Simulated assay, not measured.
Amino acid sequence: MKATFGAGCFWCIENDFRKNGVMSTSVGYMGGHLKNPTYEDVCTDTTGHAEVIQVEYDSSKISYGTLLDIFWRNHDPTTLNRQGPDIGKQYRSTIFFHTLEQEREAQQSKDDLEKSGKYGKKIVTEIVPATEFYKAEDYHQQYYEKCGLV
């Protein structure tokens, strides 16, 4: 199965998803209007794409709910179009759902987190249908591993 999340810079979240029943991860771009965008295109903040991680997972080993927990835990879902020092629509908090069940689970998890009051601010994460995924350039894949940061 596939799951796709935008949580700021894709380098920062990929490593956290590469565990526990996840078969593979790829970082890339989704949600914009430009076909085959490059990193340089997306960094202009004019393509509409978000930096995302696409996860291939075995639902008998890890649930979509667990993936959602990893997503929520690894970024600030209350900042609009930014994560830390990274500013722009490409850094927005987004859940791209691939099935109606994923949409339902994502919305329920967002509602539960909002009701918990954990952040004390409104959660701005969008939950939208997955569109075409454009894999980022090879040097972005498993970036932390390539740089010896894990």
Rank of each mutant, 00 (worst) to 15 (best):
Q83M: 10
I87M: 11
R92W: 00
K122C: 06
Y39V: 05
P77R: 00
F133S: 06
Y64C: 01
F10S: 03
G88M: 10
T79N: 00
R18W: 13
G32Y: 02
N15C: 13
K61S: 13
T47M: 07
Y64F: 14
D76I: 04
E56N: 14
A50F: 05
V124L: 10
Y64G: 02
T47G: 08
T38N: 10
H49W: 07
N36V: 00
N15G: 15
L100K: 14
F97A: 01
E40F: 11
Y91P: 02
Q54H: 04
Y39W: 08
T46I: 14
Q108T: 14
K19D: 05
L113S: 03
G120Y: 02
C12Y: 04
N81A: 14
I95T: 02
F71I: 05
K89C: 14
H98Q: 09
I62Q: 02
M23K: 15
F133I: 11
K35T: 04
N20D: 15
S93C: 02
G8M: 02
P37H: 03
N20M: 12
M23N: 15
A130C: 08
Y29P: 06
T94V: 15
L80F: 12
S26P: 02
M23L: 15
R104F: 07
L68T: 00
T46Y: 13
I62F: 10
P129R: 06
Y29H: 08
N20R: 15
V124G: 04
I87S: 09
I53Q: 03
T66Y: 11
E40H: 12
Y91V: 05
N81E: 15
V22H: 03
E126N: 10
I95G: 00
G120M: 07
R104A: 13
Q54Y: 04
V124S: 06
I53S: 03
D16M: 11
S60Q: 15
S93H: 00
E51C: 09
A106G: 02
K110N: 09
T131I: 13
T94D: 10
S26N: 13
V42Q: 01
E105R: 04
S109M: 13
L100Y: 06
P37T: 03
Y119K: 00
V124D: 07
S59M: 12
V128S: 09
F71C: 01
Y57G: 05
K35D: 07
T131P: 05
G6Q: 00
A7V: 06
V55W: 01
C43F: 08
Q107G: 09
H49T: 02
Q108K: 13
P37G: 07
W72Q: 03
T47W: 04
I127N: 01
P37R: 01
K110C: 04
V22N: 05
R104I: 01
G48E: 09
V22A: 08
E51N: 09
I53T: 12
E14T: 03
F96S: 01
A130R: 08
W11F: 11
K122L: 12
Q108V: 13
S116R: 00
T79G: 01
T38V: 06
